[in-house]
Design a protein around this nucleic acid. Structure first.
Length: 221
DNA sequence: GCGACAG
DNA sequence: ATCTTGTCGC
C-alpha cells in the first residue's frame, strides 16, 4: 500500500495533544466503506531489546472465510514512550511501515486499541484511519475511558460505552463467560457496523482472528 | 489534590 | 507491551 498523508511526529505530550485536537474533528463515524468486504486486516505490535525496538505486524484475511492472504512485519526504533492516551504516537510509525509492504489492500482494518473511545476522541484506530484514509475499527482488550452497565455473560451481549454523556463505543462479549472487548469506531465505520464485523471475525476465541494472528506474528519475532 | 490509565 | 509455571475449571 501507498499513503500520502502524514504529519510531524511529536516529541512532547503538549505537541501530541495539539495534533489530537486538530485531527479529532476530521474523524468520520459514519459508514464509508466499500462493501461487500473482501479483505479484513489486523494490526498488532510487539517490542524487542527492552522496548527499544518496535515490531509491527499486519495480517490480511479474506472475508468472510478468514483465510490468511498476506502478512508483513516491520521493525524500527521506538521513539515515544507508552503514555495512556498517546498510544498512537508510539505505535503508528512502525504500523505504517508494515502496511506499506502489503500488496493486498484491505477493505477494513481492526486495530488493537481504542477508536474514538479516547480522552480526546482520537485513539490509535481513529488516528491510523485518518492518516491512511481507510475504514478502521478500535478493538481494545481493556477500557481507557467511559462507563457502562454490566452486561450478560452470553456471547453477543453488549452495552453502550458512555463518556461525557456521549456513546463512544460498546462493550461486547465475544465469547460466553469471558471478559468483554471494547469496540469503537475508528474512522469511516459506524459503531453498529464495527460490532458486526468484529463478531464476524470471531471464531472460537475472545479475540477476533485478525488480532489473534497479528498477535502471533508480532510476538514470534 | 487524588485516582485512573488502550498497549 | 513484557517477565513467566503451574493451575483451576469446563
Amino acid at each position: 500500500m501507498k499513503f500520502n498523508r502524514d504529519h510531524a511526529w511529536p516529541s512532547t505530550l503538549e505537541e501530541a495533544i495539539v495534533i489530537q485536537e486538530t485531527l479529532r474533528d476530521q474523524v468520520i463515524t459514519e459508514d464509508q466503506l466499500q462493501e461487500p468486504i473482501q479483505y479484513v486486516a489486523g494490526v498488532d505490535m510487539g517490542f524487542e531489546a527492552d522496548g527499544t525496538i518496535s515490531r509491527a505486524a499486519v495480517v490480511v484475511l479474506s472475508f468472510p472465510d478468514l483465510q490468511v492472504i498476506e502478512t508483513s512485519l516491520a521493525h524500527r526504533p521506538t521513539t515515544f514512550p507508552y503514555v495512556p492516551g498517546f498510544l498512537s504516537f508510539r505505535e503508528i510509525p512502525a504500523v505504517l511501515n508494515a502496511l506499506e509492504k502489503i500488496k493486498t489492500t484491505p477493505d477494513i482494518i481492526l486495530c488493537d486499541g481504542q477508536g474514538i473511545a479516547h480522552p480526546r476522541g482520537l485513539g490509535i484506530a481513529s488516528h491510523l484511519g485518518l492518516l491512511i484514509d481507510m475504514p478502521t475499527i478500535g478493538v481494545a482488550k481493556s477500557r481507557l475511558v467511559g462507563k457502562y452497565e454490566e452486561l450478560s455473560e452470553t456471547k453477543g451481549s453488549k452495552q453502550p460505552l458512555v463518556y461525557k454523556g456521549e456513546t463512544v463505543g460498546a462493550v461486547l462479549r465475544t465469547r460466553t463467560g469471558v471478559k468483554p472487548l471494547y469496540i469503537s469506531s475508528g474512522h469511516r465505520v459506524s459503531l453498529p457496523t464495527a460490532i458486526n464485523y468484529v463478531l464476524r471475525c470471531i471464531t472460537k476465541y475472545r479475540l477476533p482472528e485478525t488480532t489473534r494472528i497479528a498477535d502471533k506474528l508480532a510476538s514470534a519475532k
